[in-house]
């Protein structure tokens, strides 16, 4: 879930964790998400770090704040997250794949074949 030893900042990991919770429908539109103190306790992290994670999501319009009540999921949250993951994470992963393929001198055709195989495997699950 949260990997403290990884170099990635914890607040980004917190933000991603909440995003995943929203993608999995554990939080729906207008649901209240965990407060910074709840998150701090859940993951044994500093509440300021947790707050930063929540703020990242607020800035991206995934959460909205109600004064004194906490943070809530926006109606368009799921769409934003899906879009973002497609554009950033998936693209990033594919770039890495392309780089690694280049290093290993794997040709375009071979790579496409491997990708298609992977898609079939996941479907088969």
């Amino acid at each position: 879930m949260i990997d403290p030893s990884g170099g990635r900042p914890i607040y980004i990991q917190i933000a991603e964790w909440i995003e995943t919770e929203i993608l999995n429908d554990n939080f729906k539109a207008d649901d209240k998400v965990y407060s910074q103190y709840q998150l701090a306790e859940m993951f044994t992290i500093n509440p300021a770090t947790a707050a930063k994670g929540l703020n990242v999501l607020t800035d991206e319009n995934i959460l909205y704040g109600k004064r004194g009540l906490g943070k809530f999921v926006t109606t368009e949250a799921k769409a934003i997250i899906t879009d973002k993951r497609k554009n950033e994470k998936l693209k990033g992963l594919l770039t890495e794949v392309a780089l690694e393929a280049k290093r290993l001198q794997v040709g375009e055709g071979e790579l496409t074949e491997m990708l298609q195989q992977a898609i079939t495997d996941v479907k088969g699950d």
Partner: peptide
């Protein structure tokens, strides 16, 4: 490493001087 998640900021000192005073997120 074992307490970095707990910290909001760190003060790194060396030879009696402050080398770095940063928030943990910025340090990362």
């Amino acid at each position: 490493e074992e307490m970095e998640d707990l910290l909001e900021e760190i003060i790194l000192i060396d030879e009696g001087q402050v080398v770095l005073h940063e928030s943990m997120d910025e340090l990362k």
